[in-house]
Every structure is written in structure tokens, then in C-alpha cells.
Amino acid sequence: MLDWLKFYETMIVFENVIKKFPLGNIALQDVSFEIEDNEFVFLVGSSGAGKTTILKLILQDTLPTSGTVMVNEFDVSSKKFHHTEKLRRNIGFVFQDFKILPEKNIYENIAISLQIMGISAKEVKNKVKDALDLVGLNHKEKVFPVQLSAGELQRVAIARAICGDRKIILADEPTGNLDPKTTWDIIKIFKKIEGKKTIIIATHNTDIVNSLKKRVLILKEGRLIKDIRKGGYEL
């Protein structure tokens, strides 16, 4: 059983991680880093640098070719790790393309992340309300995705990711499809939850990274070339 009640100081550890794809493409080459509990980290690099692969490895959506990936002291890179569902229930994921189900309304789209955990309907209602309040969409719970703008859809996705006391939030290019103003609205939401959850945002938006002055992991062609504690970067 996964003991998620206990959270360790070091939340994520990558140790000499190599990821090769079957056709020989190398996504990650000897990548090592540590991320503390409740830390806010940007993962930056151009397309194909390995940002998404790192997020997938944390989610156990893929396994490394070699090396170790530890999440809250659990070795999720091991083939013997059979608690993927439990691991993922502690991780919220925000996608560039939102992944909002079109046939469900906003409330249902968020509630789904709690229902899978077997949480009671009453508790689901309260938690969804809290999440909608946080992202500023409390008046739109009955609305269907087709009636929302891209920025609003991304806010729904964030609400879904933070719902259910998920300890880690992974965001893959969360502002990739958004205009500059909406991008900042989304970043403000991440700022609101800063310090309460471990947040990893994969992006190549230099403006955001440079202005927030958070830790930055810079990737290039699958290698971790820089780990800047409070910094920015240039493409």
C-alpha cells in the first residue's frame, strides 16, 4: 500500500534517468535532479527537449530505460511498482489541450477526478465548489465546455487537477494555446496554490519564467543543462 499520508521533504528524485524510444530516439540522457515538497519548478526547453517525458515518468505513463524515478519515496520507475492508480490520485495533470470532456458540464468534468476516488457525493459537491471558487468559475458549474473560452477551459482543467487534495501538480504547456492576458490569469491561479502543493510547469514561455523567479530546470536535447534556483532563462 502507498503511504501517502506521510509526505517526505524530497518529493521527486530523478537519478541518472535515461529514456530511449524503441526506434532509438533518445528523449532523456542521464538526467538527475531533486524537487522538494511544495516546491514550484519550471521545466523549460525547446520542443523535443524532454519536458513532457519527465512529466510522463513522474506519472508512470512511461518507464525509463535506465535510472531511477522516485515520487514521495516510491520507486515509480520499477516494473514491480503496481500502484499506478494510487500514485496518479495524488498527482493533478494540466494539459495544453485541456482534455475537458465535451459532453459533461463543468461540475461533472471536475467531479470526475473525485468520483474515481470513491468520495461521497456531498464531499464531491463541497470540494468542486472550493475548486471552482479558486479558479473563479463558481457561477459556471452547469455550463458545458462548448460555451467556454480557451482560458476558462484551462481554468476548469486546473480546478480538476487540484481537486481531491492532489499533492503534485504537473502542467504541460498550460498556457501554450492562450493569449498573453489569459496566460497571466492562469499563472495567477498557480501562484494561489504555491507553497501548498509541489508544482512543475513545463513551458517555453520565457516571460512567465523570467518574471516569477522560481526554480528553473533547463533541458536541451534530453540533457539537463542548468538547474537555476531562482532564475530565468533565454531560449
Binding site: 506519472l59 505513463d61 499506478t84 492508480e85 494510487k86 500514485l87 496518479r88 490520485r89 495524488n90 498527482i91 495533470f93 482534455k99 470532456l101 470526475i112 477526478s113 474515481i116 476516488m117 480538476r160
Partner: peptide, 13 residues
């Protein structure tokens, strides 16, 4: 398919 993939990522068994 999309809904199933999303549920799997959210941790549904």
C-alpha cells in the same frame, strides 16, 4: 477513448 485515457491519468482503476 479520450475519456478513458483521461480517467486513467486521473488515477481511475
Amino acid at each position: 477513448k479520450d475519456e478513458i485515457e483521461l480517467l486513467q491519468l486521473l488515477g481511475a482503476d
